[in-house]
Nucleic acid binder design. Structure first.
Lengths: 340, 340
DNA sequence: GTGAAAGCGCTAACAG
DNA sequence: CTGTTAGCGCTTTCAC
């Protein structure tokens, strides 16, 4: 819409009556330029409203002070909380964070990965969509620091920050078992997702520890989408398949799912049904304690995770040092899991 | 950590035994290259695991197929919902979205603005931190399409997508007045934020329409931070200043604030106090209907807003056409506002 | 169908 | 302190 091309450093030099080198100097090392000259350049910059071309700068300089993060779902508070932790750590070193959402689509993940890499980011924080991290290893091999978020690297050669999901599942199931429940419906995601599988392992461990048989106790339902409506739909189908007799204990792979469960149960059998169904969620999102039925949930230290992830990224970029940080989740008991 | 520099197109050319022009051709116009040559180049690319340098590409080409969005707060579901709408529209044209969070800090906004502009984004979607949009106009004047999100441009020369906040405030207040309330505490943000001021105007309009005097009816409290804990703190202070006698009707500038209010009231006076206080929120976030006291809220069509914003951005980039789209909010009545 | 070469805007090294 | 200049890696004419 504006035919004229952006003014370049050469234009600035011309109108200020200096050389491009001098302009570059006032841009990057102002103190090495004589004040009167500097002023002349600065007013030329203002006059032309010059903005330096980041691509050229970067092409010349090599890398950049930006790091990219690719989250699974920008709408999930868990991830945005982690993002805040990342930002806070990055700000300390005057680095900036660029966010993208893969929407759990490997193609989108790949697209953003390529975009970030092509633009020479310092590093990448990624919540992988799939189980394989080979493509991420490749990227790291090419010189971009990569840190896995919310996914253990299992000696893959990538730094990672995760929570111990086995323990998380174990905490949740043990709590339900302690309440006397002999059967648990587990609304889980597909086992291709590492955390989902791990939480199941934890559930089974708790069941075994209680002297019971996992196969007899746990009824795992695999959700297509890990959000409220996906859970609502899945549970609606479950109820239909079980002649409307509702489960007594439900463990949900995240709080959004638990909210969907509450929504479904309330619709199907009102508050009474809700009250006699023990529900445990995961993530302990902000509003978990404010729900109609305050939600018992497994809390993950999101902000710390983000902070640690950024820290690992910088370490990796700096010295090549690789590490895995595993946080321990904690069960926050509220009334949703306590039935009478 | 890896001393060797990234392989360039020249390296690929050398190992494939062709010229750089040919490599560029297989990258950009594969069909103009003879199949055997193309294969040779492709395997050289694979062998070297070549990734093209986006900066150089962009420097040469001019602009880019990326648009940036700068949101006020990445943790606010309202904004992330809008972001999803943006992404969905952008994906149609195979454009990618880069997200950043200004955290309501003008300095951070400026930082990201500059970063995006320097890197030659196609356009920018921004939720402005301040009231002035002069700096954004400047950017647009330099050839970057800019669309204001959640802020009317008021003939400023920028496209914008917003909701009619006056109507929003009016809907909320009118509802409360209809319930017979004669005084309303309005937990609002600072009036520097356009929407906050507009919602107040709407509140006053509703009060006047009911034949009452705004000054007598409305007690506006200005929040420092527009989230649950900010609201909790502010209301706690309000109660202390009023000898613990709680307000009967509270209008909250957003749902997070309303959640904070519920938290505070529940702590101060339990469910009973909560039950006799009429609360209206704003945004109708996903969980609003699932709160302990399901929240009456003013709903804004977030996804459509994002979609429209992206649409406007493309139009602006394409033809320079500027437009303002104003969405009408809608009141969703739930039990939080219905006292007995 | 392929190669050679110019140049995008910038920084940094070196001269003066 | 300031100017000159050589690339950074890529795309794109223009020849062949």
């Amino acid at each position: 819409m504006n035919g004229r091309r952006r003014p370049s450093i050469a234009d600035v030099a011309r109108t200020a009556g200096v050389s491009v080198g001098t302009v570059s100097n006032v841009l990057n090392r102002p103190d090495t330029v004589a004040p009167p000259t500097r002023e002349r350049v600065e007013s030329a910059i203002a006059e032309l409203s010059f903005v330096r071309n980041g691509s050229a700068r970067q092409l010349r300089q090599g890398s950049i002070s930006t790091v990219g993060a690719i989250l699974l779902d920008i709408r999930n508070p868990f991830f945005t909380d982690v993002a805040r932790g990342i930002e806070d750590r990055l700000a300390v070193d005057d680095l900036t964070l660029m966010l993208a959402s893969s929407d759990d689509d490997p193609a989108r993940e790949a697209k953003y990965l390529r975009l970030f890499e092509e633009h020479g980011v310092l590093g990448l924080l990624v919540v992988p969509t799939g189980r394989s991290v080979d493509h991420l290893l490749e990227i790291q091999r090419r010189g971009v620091a990569v840190v896995l978020l919310d996914a253990a690297s299992a000696a893959s050669g990538l730094s990672s920050v995760s929570v111990d999901d086995v323990t998380g599942g174990e905490l949740a199931a043990a709590h339900l078992l302690e309440q006397g429940h002999q059967s648990i419906v587990f609304l889980n995601g597909p086992h291709e997702i590492r955390q989902c599988e791990a939480r199941r392992v934890g559930v089974d461990r708790a069941v075994a520890a209680a002297g019971l048989e996992p196969d007899q106790v746990v009824d795992e339902v695999t959700l297509a989408t890990l959000d409220a409506s996906g859970a609502d739909d899945a549970l609606t189908r479950w109820l239909a398949a079980h002649d409307g007799s509702a489960p007594r204990a439900i463990f949900c792979v995240n709080d959004l799912v638990a909210i969907g469960v509450q929504r479904c149960l309330r619709r199907q059998g009102g508050t009474a049904l809700l009250a006699r169904t023990a529900i445990v969620g995961y993530d302990d999102i902000d509003v978990a304690g404010e729900l109609a039925l305050p939600l018992t949930s497994v809390r993950q230290p999101t902000h710390e995770m983000g902070h640690a992830a950024a820290e690992l990224l910088l370490r990796q970029a700096d010295s090549g040092e690789i590490d895995d940080v595993v946080f321990r989740p904690e069960l926050v008991v509220r009334s949703s899991s306590l039935v009478t």
